[in-house]
């Protein structure tokens, strides 16, 4: 297993780089994980899972109504198998700090929703990113396997 940090060409172990989808190809952004407020400095759940707030920095999101007549954008944290979704809150171009995520590995997803108060993901995905804890990859899927240095 090799760390995927080199593959991302920058960013630290608390940063998530978003990939746009065909629904919003010009959308860009990153998210930075901050430990949730805690009297102990490092915030963890009773089970020992790190607990985060997520600071979004987004740009290039088109008007939501241009995507299936959506009313706005909603950010989610999802388990890696997509079975569990946690609503984080609404986002727009610019910065926003939302919370909380308490998973070892997870995805952060932004969707265009007709109802921005929804607690269930329904709309198309416009941005997605994986947690830094998901960067470790098997060699066979790694660019380095192909004999070239990354970046």
């Amino acid at each position: 297993m090799l760390a995927g940090l080199l593959l991302l060409g920058g960013g630290g172990p608390y940063d998530i780089l978003f990939l746009p989808t065909r629904a919003a190809p010009e959308a860009r952004g990153t998210a930075r994980l901050h430990y949730a407020t805690s009297p102990f400095g490092v915030a963890v759940t009773a089970e020992g899972v790190a607990r985060w707030t997520v600071r979004f920095t987004l740009e290039g999101l088109p008007p939501a109504r241009s995507i299936g007549n959506a009313q706005g954008y909603v950010a989610w944290a999802a388990s890696s198998d997509l079975r569990e979704w946690d609503r984080l809150g609404t986002v727009t171009n610019g910065t926003a700090t939302l919370g909380h995520v308490a998973r070892n590995k997870f995805m952060v997803v932004v969707t265009a929703e007709q109802d921005t108060t929804t607690t269930m993901r329904r709309g198309p995905t416009v941005l997605s990113g994986i947690s830094p804890s998901s960067w470790m990859q098997p060699l066979l899927t790694h660019a380095l396997f192909r004999g070239i240095p990354p970046g």
């Binding site: 660019a143 192909r146 990354p150």
Partner: peptide
């Protein structure tokens, strides 16, 4: 050729793949 990562559009350094 192919390389890099999904974030870079699968383009990295020199590659004949």
């Amino acid at each position: 050729g192919f390389g890099g990562s999904q974030e870079t559009g699968w383009q990295g350094g020199p590659s004949v793949m």
